[in-house]
Design a protein around this nucleic acid. Structure first.
Lengths: 247, 247
DNA sequence: GCATATTTGTCCGTATGTATA
DNA sequence: CTATACATACGGACAAATATG
């Protein structure tokens, strides 16, 4: 269970021991990134250089380098002379992200023009797709709705992978990470994820049959519904928090 | 005479605020970025922290922040304990970049489904497109081939802008900046840019007529030719430099 | 392969500027 | 308006890694 406690910085101390191999700044960024996309810190929270540097036992210089990395990934926003804050996505951001998702994922599916054969790298990608569908269904059977969410991320990363572009892959990962800043408003995860299990299955089947064009149309429909549902929930949550603030 | 109002200083400071204040690290990054995309430093060159910090009169810490920013933009690569180097794009990188360009730019053009009217933001974007075409032609008439190249960049940024997405806009700018690390191998700029002036004109006309689909097809053709031409010249240049090294 | 010089990685102390109670 | 807290930027220091002869 997520617990965005006010002094969550102390939680970071426990994660510190996993600091191991690469550059310190990158490792710090990895740790912070995990905390951010798991929703352990609420949007708009200011991240104090001092508190975190002490908690992670790194210098402020190193921590600032990590902050730069995460700002570039749009998980943090840097305000000059005010510090860094956990990104709070606007509704416009969500719309923009889905606009880009539609472009990328549909284009990736349209790259599929022939049925997948037993060997070849294309077939391994369609296998990834199928595997994400299966894992998602199994998680749903267990009632593990966060697990369904994770499987769904894998599914969409696998869709993007069909474009055969490392830049598209990385971009997709970034977009999904950004979206996770929003997903936490979907409290009843079941209602959010369950309807899409069947969609994913159908899209995977179309890909296996080499029907990239039709798969793209199905995904377009999927993404439009998901976007609408997310926006409704998100703007409702925003209105409620405004009420809380105004008291 | 400019209005000598006693408050003019206030106007200046407010204008400065709208431009967005920047930190030293970002200003340093701006300077370095310009040098990089203008090809003033050869790929694979190591950038010495000490030398540049002294030259720009900033501390090493600040410079390192700028390095991080540019590494994230893929203009520099960071090698642990070895420093940062000017990015050297591989042929695979060029292919990957064009793959993403095709996805983004064609998708943007397909957003155009109706003729542009006199007002509305869509028409301003198609005006940007037309303006880039005109500027390019004028530069060609002057024999200013670098100018043609710049106008061409504007053209493609304007194409991407039709997608109405800030993320697509930023992405496109980054991709074009990356590509500029390669363009310098095209010594006879004239042969590279001249054939595409007519293509740009035709695409702009199709956009103005609301024929997004057909404009997309024309651009697809354009991008495939440009990619091929660039790859041939680039791999040839790479082979030559290998020969130079092996002696 | 070794010893040396150079360069990066990281940290600290501090002075200055900026935002906010 | 003042005080306080904090971010920004600098310069120096030293260990660790790397390049060089």
């Amino acid at each position: 269970m997520v617990d965005p406690s006010p002094n969550w910085a102390v939680d970071l101390s426990s994660a510190r021991h996993s600091l191991g191999r690469t550059s310190t700044a990158e490792r710090v960024a990895d740790i912070l990134r995990t905390h951010l996309i798991e929703g352990r810190v609420l949007p708009r929270t200011r991240l104090s250089e001092d508190a975190i540097a002490v908690a992670l036992e790194v210098s402020r210089n190193t921590l600032r380098e990590a902050f730069r990395l995460l700002s570039h990934e749009r998980l943090l926003v840097h305000e000059l002379n005010r510090g860094v804050f956990v990104r709070k996505l606007s509704v416009e951001d969500v719309i923009d992200i889905y606009r880009l998702r539609r472009i990328l994922e549909v284009a990736a599916l349209r790259c599929v023009t022939s049925p997948s054969t037993r060997d070849g790298r294309r077939s391994s990608k369609s296998a990834d797709l199928r595997s994400a569908v299966t894992v998602g269904k199994e998680a749903a059977d267990r009632g593990d709705w966060p697990g369904v969410g994770t499987a769904n991320m894998h599914f969409h990363r696998s869709v993007a992978a069909l474009a055969n572009s490392v830049r598209v892959d990385e971009l997709m990962s970034r977009l999904l990470a950004e979206l996770r800043l929003v997903f936490h408003v979907m409290v009843p995860l079941r209602q959010f994820h369950e309807p899409y299990l069947a969609d994913n299955d159908r899209i995977a089947t179309l890909v296996e049959a080499g029907e990239g064009e039709r798969a793209g149309e199905a995904l377009l429909d999927y993404l439009e519904r998901a976007e609408r549902q997310l926006i409704v929930a998100y703007s409702k949550a925003n209105r409620q928090s405004e009420v809380l603030i105004s008291r």
